[in-house]
Simulated assay, not measured.
Amino acid sequence: MPADFAARSVLAATALLALGSLTACEEQIASAPYLAAFNEPEILRAEDAGAPPNARPGSCWGRHVTPAVVETVSEQIMVQPPEVLADGTVIAPGIFRTETQQRIVQERRELWFETPCAEVWTEDFTASLQRALKVRGLFYGSITAAPDARTRAAIRRYQSAEGLDSAILSLESARRLGLVAVPREE
Rank of each mutant, 00 (worst) to 15 (best):
P2D: 13
D4H: 13
F5I: 12
A6N: 08
T14D: 10
L17W: 12
L17C: 07
L19Y: 09
S21F: 14
A24P: 03
A24C: 09
E26V: 09
E27D: 14
A30M: 05
A30S: 13
P33L: 07
A36Y: 02
A36T: 12
A37E: 06
A37H: 13
N39G: 10
E42V: 15
I43D: 00
D48S: 11
N54F: 12
C60F: 02
R63I: 08
H64E: 13
V65S: 14
V73S: 07
I77N: 07
I77T: 05
I77L: 15
M78V: 07
V79N: 03
V79K: 08
P81D: 10
P82G: 14
V84A: 07
L85T: 14
L85V: 03
D87T: 09
D87L: 14
P93Y: 01
G94C: 05
F96R: 07
F96P: 01
R97N: 04
R97M: 08
T98P: 01
E99M: 07
T100D: 05
T100A: 00
Q101D: 08
Q102G: 06
I104E: 15
V105C: 05
V105R: 14
V105I: 11
Q106R: 15
Q106E: 15
L111G: 00
F113P: 08
F113R: 05
F113T: 07
F113M: 05
E114P: 00
T115H: 00
T115W: 02
T115C: 01
T115Q: 02
C117A: 11
C117K: 06
A118T: 05
T122A: 03
S128Y: 08
K134L: 08
K134W: 11
F139A: 03
G141Q: 09
S142R: 13
A145W: 03
A145L: 06
A146T: 13
A146N: 09
P147N: 15
D148N: 15
A149H: 11
R152I: 01
R152N: 05
A154P: 06
D165W: 13
D165R: 13
D165L: 13
A167T: 09
L169E: 01
L171N: 07
S173Y: 06
A174V: 05
R176Q: 14
L179W: 09
A181L: 13
V182P: 04
P183S: 01
R184G: 10
R184C: 05
E185R: 10
E186G: 12
